[in-house]
Design a protein around this nucleic acid. Structure first.
Lengths: 244, 244
DNA sequence: CGAGGGTTTGAAGTGCATCAAATAGTGTGG
DNA sequence: CCACACTATTTGATGCACTTCAAACCCTCG
């Protein structure tokens, strides 16, 4: 289960925009150093402050990035699903991971060597620029997150989260599927599960959306936009959540 | 007032770690394209979403980076003092500034052309790597900020902020000077001025620190560490605030 | 069917925001 | 050097949002 087929791994790499600017040869050789691995739910993959030698791309399942205090309280940095990459920033942090990561649900990952990435970046300005674009958009996302925590209340944060999951150009009725369970969404949004539940109920009342398990239906995005976007600095058709 | 002496500007650039990896020739030519400018208190320099052509380094005074909703509520991203650089991330965001900036107090800045920076980055991997290190540490700082907002209460956030201003290796009594006025510190920490005042009063009671205007005196850092660092994922001697 | 996790609901408490007003501090012109 | 104006800061009173603890409910899966 620990060695994957290089062709499959290469296909995964080819989907990431940072590797689209690289030569096929480099991507191929990186893929050959890739390993597919499986994690059980709750399994810790890496620890904040730990030595870094590899970075990862999620194949399936959910991976939670978080930071944890001595007494066990944790702040969720992000929750990743298929296609997302993490751990690569350690290259710029003295090969130390700046966060911890664990499988929030059974997951499969590809692990790849950091030194190969670093060497290529040092020699390939196009990759370097692509990495910077990726980091800058991650940084911007964090700025937005901080803004949301400051300016939006719980129901608005949920509304904003839903809008970013939806096809924002859709006219008329829309269905939105939560990408992971409600407890995790709550932690991703920095609130307690109870608060999430109550806040979603409030959204239901205010905007007329309907909730059925992990599926949320809406007659149109307008109501949600009116409710959530007034407390956000972005114009409505805003960056979606998948683009990182 | 708008054209500065290139030698002075070069000296400013030489202090920034990202330019220390560049050739003297590049820094010199960048400095020659620099302009010194003065801002009155409250003057808006750049706007989130606006076209970007230049980036900036603060010479003196205070500059507030923030994001603002339609109804005027603002979330402070950062507050910058002498030596800090901003606006350069626009290079990776399609030449659009991701935040607004205004002078929180009369300030002088150097402005520099983004395209020169971009061209050099594309040709100079060492600069590219240095920029990435700088961005990564900025990103990490944001992660920490988000963690603090999630896990620390108001007095703890203040305590943490003070510790990062202090010389963390100091034994015995320490004096800490607030880098800008209390209202701004409050906004930087995501709280109201009233909350800041009350929280500081609570810190006084809990840790025995003394406040006199903008100066805070402490018999030793221990008490403050005990009070604040328990709710943070960093070990105590933690990254300081000046290093960005 | 029954166990266990996810989710909802209820009741009570806490922390921060808000509004209002007093006080301290700073710079100004007389 | 003082009085005034203006701003920064503190203090008080109240309300709301979110958390916490507890218990019920629901759903899935063995």
């Amino acid at each position: 289960m620990s060695v994957g087929c290089p062709d499959t791994i290469k296909a995964v790499l080819d989907q990431r925009s940072v590797f689209q600017v690289c030569s096929g040869g480099f991507v191929q050789s990186l893929a050959e150093q890739g390993r597919v691995m499986a994690l059980r739910k709750g399994q810790v993959l890496l620890t904040s402050g730990g030595e870094a030698s590899r970075f990862y791309i999620v194949l399936n399942g959910w991976v939670k990035l978080y930071r944890e205090t001595l007494d066990g309280a944790q702040a969720v940095v992000d929750i990743l699903t298929a296609g997302h990459m993490f751990g690569e920033v350690a290259v710029f942090e003295g090969d130390i991971y700046p966060y911890s990561a664990e499988a929030a649900e059974t997951a499969q990952l590809v692990s790849l060597p950091l030194d190969a990435l670093k060497a290529e970046m040092e020699g390939n300005p196009r990759l370097a620029m692509a990495m910077m674009r990726s980091m800058a958009s991650g940084r911007k996302r964090q700025d937005e997150e901080l803004e949301h925590r400051t300016l939006q209340n719980a129901p608005q944060r949920i509304g904003c989260f839903l809008l970013r999951l939806a096809d924002q150009n859709a006219e008329g009725a829309v269905d939105i599927h939560l990408p992971y369970d409600k407890t995790l969404v709550a932690s991703r949004l920095g609130m307690q599960p109870e608060t999430f539940s109550r806040a979603l109920a409030k959204l239901k009342k205010e905007t007329g959306l309907r909730v059925k398990g992990a599926t949320i239906s809406l007659d149109s995005l307008d109501q949600l936009v009116r409710y959530s976007c007034s407390a956000c600095s972005n114009e409505f058709p805003c960056s979606d959540l998948k683009s990182c």
